[in-house]
Design a protein around this nucleic acid. Structure first.
Length: 552
RNA sequence: GCGCCCGUAGCUCAGCUGGAUAGAGCAACGGACUUCUAAUCCGUAGGCCACAGGUUCGAAUCCUGUCGGGCGCACCA
């Protein structure tokens, strides 16, 4: 928030410099305000002089001098300006400016950090999208939490967010599911049965079959039709998935069934549209899409010789629907194993005249579960399959959410079960939660001792002069910008790193300085600072869907 | 063979829209609880940012190549 204010002043100076003929307008928008790593280099710095110098073949340090002169008009914000190194201009913000962030933070409270940069932007976040063939896996879990956090971030920045789950309850997978269920059903009745070659072997199928036996007895034993089995399985599995998502506090606004695309004739429409553009042809009884026109190595089949579409066609049709439904931005969260589908969908959209730049695909890499230093093997169809539900049973919702969000999506995620189950110092989740609990405890203590924070207007915030205090205030001021950048870049892990740093600063400060002391005025100022920190920790934890406990 | 992702401290990872002396947690070692929650803090140690070139005032960050790891490359999804 202070950074933005400084940037605005800098832009003013830049324009003034242009009108005074000090430099040309060419460098507009190319310079940046950044936070130097070294405290000695000021609160903020700009590379403007070096950028201009480079472009206009002028001495950067001279430009820096001119800029520093122009900044002399802004002493209300900047206390000291220094020219350093190759032409950096360093700014030292006045302490009272840092003090002024506290009323904003505390005044806005729950709303501090929210913004409207996404106002008017309708965005669709598609995630999980697992077909109902079994419980959610660890990989689905990462995707669910990631998608949910991204949706929360986008909503926090004013976007109009729709969360959607896309699934298909037809097709081969589901047929095998039905057959697997029937086989277990017959098995339970002690009848002859053939378990499908590639059937689903999980225990959950037996449970579904057992329920069928309980409810219907042997009434289904002579049925040729697998539909009742399939439907029973689908219903039970979806209920299960839903329950798991609920535990993780994840809700969807809409479930989009692939089937509706067929029913509405939209699949045929897409084929016809592509064919009309000459981008589709028939060969070997199949229908091919000329993806080579869009830079791919080979054309792809969109309708098999059997007459069934491949996954590409409905995927394209589905994304076309997203556009037609009026979304300005479409975010797809996919596992890394779905990389191959992305170029096909993009090509399809381009062919249909839509702008693929409006679709952002977030690919997340795989999760490796570690226990006692060794990798836990996860085979989808076999016995040692680990579900997200089991993981939640073992470590709890907060830890699962936090661990899944700790890494950027691009990184392989190593989930250390030993670390996650530690209810102690090593576990990073508790570090932040403990910070919040500690702050809440300070408030209780203050009340107990009869030390009221008082009205913010009357509190002598200028008493906050310790380096740690100013640094904390600076972090509080940076929160809204952090949320914005995490949202626009679809990177929830940024929130976690920020909060970890804030919690660390607070813990350190707490150990070094007393908040409640005999100095009543100072105590009040510090209590307000503490409240500001607590507000951000709580808002941040809410943003990633982790509890902010009052006590621990 | 082709495409995408990754390679940073012993381990797990930030930093990557180029900026000044590369960071955190864990593990190791040494300290701090009569005072607001020690699930905390302070200190020590730990680095050819995989490698080699290139771009420029300046590269962990951008480009090219090499090596290593993961994931894909169906008329499966």
């Amino acid at each position: 928030m202070i950074k933005k204010r400084l940037k605005a002043r800098l832009d003013e100076c830049f324009t003034k410099g242009v009108s005074q003929g000090l430099w040309s307008a060419d460098s507009a928008g190319t310079y940046a305000v950044e936070e130097p790593k070294q405290a000695a280099h000021g609160d903020f710095a700009t590379n403007m002089a070096m950028v201009i110098g480079g472009r206009e073949k002028k001495n950067p340090r001279e430009i820096a001098g001119l800029l520093a002169g122009l900044m002399a008009d802004h002493t209300d914000l900047v206390g000291k300006v220094e020219i350093a190194g190759p032409g950096f201009v360093n700014f030292f913000i006045k302490p009272e400016v840092w003090h002024s962030v506290l009323p904003e933070v505390c005044g806005q409270n729950e709303k501090y950090g929210l913004s409207e940069i996404g106002a008017g932007c309708k965005v669709l976040v598609e995630f999980v999208s697992a077909n109902p063939t079994g419980p959610l896996s660890i990989g689905h879990g990462r995707q669910a939490v990631l998608g949910d956090a991204i949706a929360r971030l986008l909503a926090a920045t004013g976007h109009q967010v729709t969360r959607e789950y896309y699934y298909n309850d037809a097709g081969r997978q589901m047929r095998v599911l039905g057959e697997s269920t029937r086989a277990r059903y017959l098995e339970l009745l002690g009848l002859k049965h053939d378990f499908p070659e590639d059937g689903y072997q999980g225990e959950y199928i037996r449970e579904i079959a057992a329920k069928l036996v309980k409810e219907q007895g042997d009434a289904l034993k002579d049925l040729e039709e697998i539909t009742p089995f399939k439907e029973a399985a689908e219903q039970a599995i979806f209920a299960d998935i839903d329950a798991t998502l609920n535990r993780l506090e994840i809700k969807f606004d809409n479930y989009f069934n692939e089937h509706t695309l067929y029913d509405a004739g939209l699949i045929d429409e897409v084929v016809a549209a592509l064919r009309a553009k000459g981008l589709v042809y028939d060969r070997d009884d199949a229908v091919w899409f000329k993806t080579t026109e869009y830079g791919q190595e080979q054309d792809r089949v969109i309708i098999k010789s059997s007459g069934e579409p491949t996954y590409r066609l409905p995927d394209i049709a589905y994304h076309r629907e997203k556009f037609k439904r009026g979304f300005d931005w479409m975010v797809d969260i996919f596992g890394a194993d779905h990389i191959a589908t992305v170029p096909d969908v993009m090509a399809g959209l381009m062919a249909l005249g839509y702008d693929p730049a409006k679709v952002t695909v977030v690919l997340h890499q795989f999760v490796t579960l570690m226990r006692e230093g060794k990798q836990v093997k996860m085979s989808t169809r076999k016995a040692n399959f680990v579900t997200i539900d089991e993981l939640v049973d073992e470590v709890g919702v907060d830890v699962v959410r936090f661990f899944f969000l700790m890494r950027k999506a691009d990184s392989h995620l190593e989930f250390d079960l030993d670390l996650a189950t530690q209810q102690s110092q090593e576990n990073p989740v508790y570090y932040m939660q403990y910070g919040h609990a500690r702050l809440a405890s300070i408030n209780r203590k203050a009340a107990e001792k009869g030390v009221a924070r008082g009205s913010l207007a009357d509190v002598p915030l200028h008493r906050l002069i310790e380096a740690e205090e100013l640094h904390l205030l600076k972090s509080l001021a940076a929160w809204p910008e952090l949320v914005e950048s995490a949202a626009l870049n679809l990177e929830p892990h940024g929130v976690i790193f920020f909060m970890q740093d804030l919690a660390a600063q607070f813990h350190s400060y707490y150990n070094k300085h007393r908040i409640i002391s005999d100095d009543l005025e100072l105590s009040r100022a510090r209590l307000w600072l503490a409240e500001g920190i607590r507000i951000i920790l709580r808002n941040g934890l809410n943003l990633i869907g982790v509890n902010a406990p009052e006590t621990m």
